[in-house]
């Protein structure tokens, strides 16, 4: 299935990736090639086959809800690109 520039723009928007015109053209071609290859899966009959999302047969894993020390504020902020007081600082949201 061919992936168009419009498809790439839609996916880039969902992925929060700003792409140049050149990148859009390149990814449309490359994703078309890759998803073209993936079409081979349509040859397999999967009627009644359950999905495997995870290799281990794990169900819910529980633990005691014990309070553990968390990262001190200063350490949590140490890698912040911008901060103000005890908070991360970002551009306007609304």
């Amino acid at each position: 299935m061919a992936i168009t520039i419009a498809d790439v723009e839609h996916v880039a928007l969902l992925s929060r990736l700003e792409l140049s015109v050149g990148e859009k053209e390149r990814y449309a071609q490359e994703l078309s090639d890759i998803f073209g290859h993936v079409e081979e899966l349509n040859k397999v009959d999967v009627t009644g086959v359950p999905p495997t999302a995870h290799p281990l047969p794990l169900k819910n894993v529980f633990r005691e809800d014990v309070i553990q020390p968390s990262l001190p504020n200063a350490e949590a902020l140490a890698n912040a690109p911008a901060k103000e007081g005890p908070l991360f600082k970002v551009p306007q949201i609304v």
Binding site: E18, P81, P91
Partner: peptide, 22 residues
Amino acid sequence: AQYGYRTEGAKNIVEMFSKSRA
């Protein structure tokens, strides 16, 4: 937002996300 690379001068949060990632 919290760590790693951030683009310069983004005017709003979506632009910051999309440009930082790009």
